Simulated assay, not measured.
Amino acid sequence: MMQTVGIALLGVGTIGSAVLRTIAAEREALAQRTGFALEVRWGLARHPERVVQAGLPEWAATTSIDPILEDPTVAVVVEAMGGEEPAATYLKRALTAGKHVVTANKEALSKHFAELVDTARRHQRALLFEASVGAGIPLMASLRQLLMVNRIYRIRGIVNGTTNYILTVMAEEGMPYQEALREAQRLGYAEPDPTADVEGYDAAYKLSILASLAAGRHIRPDYVERRGITTVTPDQILDARARGGAMKLIAQAELFDGSWHLSVQPVFVPGSDLLAHVRLNLNAIELTGDRVGTVVLYGPGAGPAPTASALIADTIDAVRFGAALLPTLELPA
């Protein structure tokens, strides 16, 4: 029997619009594969006309989250706004109102992880965030499965496609940093204000989420030792190539003597290391467990289509499994 799932979409920018397009294009196929008919009933944006431009009817547009929380036909709130606030407040309010929550927001999640998990647990609702790290790479699903049996003691990888693209073209085409950044912006890989990416904040948020899951407790992003790529010089790029390797922005979390040590910084990666060969805007993440050894996940770490894919898959899982997929996280008393 087909089940209709009412969805409210917070944010109808690049990612939110991709979610709407994907649902519209794949509605019948999704229903056949999953048994769920997805219906977007609300779109929240600062300007209602943006919601209409994204493809929803005028009556579905709202600038306030209140009608969404009061609508009993909305089962899942999908958040694609970005930024810490008001997104973090909206996520908590949605969970408190009895809605499942799906988000791609690494900043809000990394800074409010314990609070959001606690709220979801108390109200027995799903909180899913596959799209927050690695976009379309099934990273959270893989990590969740590994953690059933393994103690994960090391996470290492390239988790920011913008900086990886910049470093790649600097090395392969000899572009100066500023020119490489402008090219990344032209292609849509970098924001007009690239600070979050190039200074390592984005990677730190993502590492915080992964490390929190591995540690079983909230490790805040300000605990991450962080240095961006703006300090990388052309001489370092040339020297890395001459030595057969590459400069990469590496995010790493490792367990030493019972304590987690987290860092995001540009480092030389030798050519014998798989990460040295991850090019352009792709991501690659190594997860090392005491039973399985090292598992490597590789793929597009950003982009509207991969991110929308993860958000929609999480929406279906939220309805299917509910709070059963909540992470095991030590919460404050």
Rank of each mutant, 00 (worst) to 15 (best):
T162V: 09
L331H: 13
V232E: 06
I155S: 01
G301V: 08
P192W: 14
V169R: 10
P176A: 13
V101A: 04
R320I: 10
T163C: 02
A310C: 08
Q124W: 05
E130A: 04
M2C: 08
P306L: 00
I7L: 06
G244D: 07
D235F: 05
F268W: 15
F36Y: 15
V292E: 14
E172M: 06
L210R: 00
A29K: 12
S64R: 12
A75I: 06
E84F: 11
L249A: 00
L311W: 02
H123Y: 12
D257L: 01
H277I: 09
K206M: 09
N105I: 02
R241A: 12
A114D: 14
A184L: 07
D239R: 13
I158D: 06
R151G: 07
V292S: 03
S272D: 08
E39N: 15
V224T: 11
L56A: 11
A211H: 06
L329K: 06
D235Y: 13
T233G: 06
P332M: 01
G322Y: 05
I312A: 00
A284M: 12
L238S: 11
F256I: 10
W59P: 15
A126R: 00
S110A: 15
A18N: 11
D193P: 09
A54C: 07
A313I: 07
A97Q: 07
I219C: 04
A276I: 03
E173M: 06
R151K: 06
I15H: 03
L181W: 01
M1S: 15
T231N: 11
L331N: 15
L128Q: 09
A29E: 15
A45W: 01
A180Q: 02
A61M: 02
V224H: 06
E79I: 04
I250R: 00
T328R: 11
E70K: 04
G271N: 09
R220E: 15
A29Y: 15
P72H: 11
M175P: 12
L255N: 02
M2W: 14
L297I: 11
T63N: 02
D66V: 11
H47K: 09
G174E: 07
D235Q: 14
R279D: 15
K99Q: 04
R156I: 10
A60R: 04
V269N: 10
D118T: 09
G245Q: 04
T22L: 12
S263W: 14
L331E: 14
V169G: 03
V295I: 11
T162W: 05
Y205C: 05
G157S: 09
L38M: 05
I285Y: 05
T22W: 11
G13Y: 05
